[in-house]
Write a protein that binds this DNA or RNA. Structure first.
Length: 650
DNA sequence: CAATCGTGCGCG
DNA sequence: AAAGCGCGCACGATTG
């Protein structure tokens, strides 16, 4: 087997045939139209780290190119010409593509074995599910029913029955291109074509079994190019502004609120035992031994004050705590959160080479949406005291503009499209304000009155209640949650929901149908085109262990029902934003536009472009988004609003 | 002492 | 008996 490896390097290997780079064109002819490709690198950062090797191969032959001797940038022309009409298989393409983009290598037709596996096993591997099943029936059962494996070693085992040795991975950098490293690199591409074939076989059975075609796979294999480029581009943060206007302010406010909380403790006879003084005899500061960042301690304090709260969630405190300490706690919590999650540590995510943040992106969650980490740019504050200020710190390079925008009420339009409820559909067709119009129907009041205070809770308006309903119902909200959120009794909440659904009966039917589908079949689909499937492994667990899961099964069926209502809606939103990103990137590539995609946040796309191009680009971007939306939404208008700015505008 | 769990909250 | 979906992050508390 070793003899089928061709090592391209200036360093001779003892038992592996070694060639100079002149041999590359000939070696590349060993392969058919499908090849596996992989890289070894010194680390995860495409900007700071470098390539150690590039491997190209199939089951019969593998080429391992020593990048230390033959840098990728010298091979760009040969490789681009070669990849032009090949199907390139990568495991976790997002990683390799970032390095390829650095050197200008383009892969037009790619297949990602990791993404394919995510599609095949949609809904599996959920950590919460694993935990729940483990608690109930032990680890073995959890692994059997819920777990999934996406690593190349596990895929090789599953599809080729081969044990790949991954233990060497961590030492490649130190060891250099030793024989076992070369062999390891070759193995990483050797099995990719076979894995792909087997995965495609499975996906083809999904067509018949579930009505899910290969379109979603094509979508993801296109989208990964955009996401890797997006992560490679990164986004610029004005760190000195951020330090001054965000971190310093949050720190100051945390100190202030701690002092005020401590003062409350000193005031209260009930809390006296927590009081501490600091300083000397003449200058004493009133402190406490309470860590206000600890929810356990906060709960204890509130209980000692006679507040019978069960937790310290902001909502609970807002509604139930009468003592003035409640308000101060809320204030402290907000700034402490900013300090913790968006303070100094957050700024450390700025890349030293580029001075930008380059998140890593998980491309396929159980609904089809994406997630981000290191940092998670999907959770940058947009509201609250510092929301605006924080977003203003995300800026373009000199001479550029930020151009971005979002869809208007996209999930609500999905509900219109798929329920075909007359009132819901017509409101969008007439460009009416859905919340206001439905509100007037639910509460039998004129549209002009919808912003009047809600009699049961005068802190909010009728329209606020309707908004909660409109969004909550697509998550399967019940009267319990509604009564909790808007501060009415459960009976009243139920009345409101019933009245609301009586006005939009097709929406009710649509959601009930989805809920039942998931509960009865153990899976739910995101509709075609680009349809995908989400399995509910808990369904099979309940089926196989009915005797001891009676109380659990109520909970689990409820969870599956609500997830089934939400998955198609959330998932279609995810599909559309991916389609929009693909369209946008294609516009950029095909026309060589001076623009870059920076971010996509659920139903929003942010880009950066040359100032002189901004006006034109704004329209192009907006058209891409609308065209993508119209692939899915056909009976009501699709709206996307884009704008030009000097920072990230929400 | 490190690893894991629980709580709470940021976004849509 | 549970009662709005989908996430990642950071802290304190608990566990091994």
């Amino acid at each position: 087997m070793l003899s089928n490896i061709k090592f391209i390097s200036k360093q001779k290997s003892i038992s592996i045939p070694t060639y100079t780079i002149d041999y590359l064109p000939e070696a590349l002819e060993l392969f058919e139209d499908v090849v596996g490709v992989d890289t070894e690198t010194t680390g995860y950062d495409a900007h700071g780290d470098r390539l150690l090797s590039l491997q190209i191969g199939d089951f019969n032959n593998q080429i391992v190119i020593d990048s230390s001797h033959y840098p990728l940038k010298e091979l760009v022309d040969v490789l681009n010409e070669y990849f032009k009409d090949k199907v390139v298989i990568l495991q976790n393409a997002q990683f390799d593509l970032r390095f390829f983009y650095k050197y200008g290598i383009d892969i037009p037709k790619l297949y990602d074995t990791l993404l394919a596996e995510c599609i095949i096993t949609g809904g599996l591997g959920n950590k919460e599910d694993i935990k729940n099943v483990k608690e109930l029936l032990g680890k073995e059962t959890a692994v059997k029913y819920v777990d999934r494996h996406l690593g190349l070693d596990k895929l090789a085992l599953k599809y080729c029955n081969i044990e790949l040795d991954k233990s060497i991975r961590g030492i490649i950098h130190r060891e250099g291109m030793s024989e076992r490293v070369i062999k390891y690199g070759a193995d990483d591409v050797k099995y990719l074509p076979e894995i792909r074939n087997k995965q495609l076989e499975i996906l083809n059975t999904y067509e018949e079994k579930y009505g899910i075609g290969l379109e979603v796979l094509e979508l993801e294999n296109e989208a990964v190019k955009v996401f890797s480029r997006m992560a490679f581009n990164g986004i610029k943060v004005d760190s000195s502004k951020y330090k001054k206007e965000v971190i310093a302010v949050a720190d100051k406010e945390v100190k202030r609120t701690i002092n005020e909380l401590d003062a409350e403790v000193h005031k209260s006879p009930k809390l006296k035992k927590y009081a501490v003084y600091q300083g000397n005899l003449f200058f004493q500061t009133r402190k406490t031994e309470i860590n206000w960042n600890s929810s356990t301690q906060k709960l204890k304090i509130l209980n000692e004050l006679g507040e019978k709260v069960k937790d310290t969630n902001a909502n609970t405190i807002r509604k139930e705590v009468k003592h003035p300490i409640g308000k101060k706690l809320l204030e402290y919590n907000e700034y402490k959160k900013l300090e913790n999650a968006f303070g100094e540590e957050f700024l450390k995510n700025i890349n030293k080479e580029t001075l930008r943040m380059h998140p890593s992106i998980w491309q396929i969650l159980s609904t089809g949406r994406i997630s981000m980490s290191d940092p998670n740019l999907l959770q940058i504050p947009a509201r609250g005291h510092l929301g605006d200020t924080i977003r203003k710190c995300f800026i373009p390079e000199k001479g550029n503009k930020i151009v971005g925008g979002d869809y208007s009420g996209f999930e609500l339009r999905i509900i219109a499209e798929f329920s075909q409820d007359p009132l819901w559909v017509n409101t969008f067709k007439e460009d009416g304000d859905l919340h206001s119009i439905l509100c007037s129907e639910t509460f039998d009041i004129p549209v002009t009155d919808v912003k009047k205070p809600f009699p049961y809770n005068t802190n909010i308006t009728y329209r606020d209640v309707q908004k909660t309903l409109n969004f909550g119902l697509s998550y399967g909200m019940s009267e319990f949650k509604l009564s909790n959120t808007i501060g009415v009794s459960k009976a009243e909440a139920k009345q409101i929901i019933d009245k609301f659904f009586s006005k939009v009966p097709e929406v009710k039917k649509f959601l009930d149908k989805l809920g039942n589908l998931g509960k009865n079949r153990g899976y739910i689909k995101v509709p075609n085109p680009y349809g995908r499937i989400r399995f509910f492994p808990k369904f099979d667990v309940i089926k196989d262990y009915p005797y001891e899961t009676k109380d659990i099964s109520f909970r689990w069926y409820g969870e599956m029902e609500r997830a089934s209502k939400n998955t198609p809606i959330q998932g279609l939103n995810g599909t559309v934003i991916k389609r929009a990103l693909i369209r946008t990137q294609q516009e950029i590539d095909n026309n060589k536009y001076p623009a870059k995609i920076l971010l996509s946040v659920y139903d929003e796309i942010q880009t950066e472009c040359e100032e002189s191009f901004a006006e034109e680009w704004k329209n192009i971007l907006q058209n891409c988004m609308i065209a993508a939306g119209e692939e899915i939404i056909k009976t009501v208008p699709v709206k996307a609003d884009c704008a030009i700015g000097d920072y990230w505008i929400k």
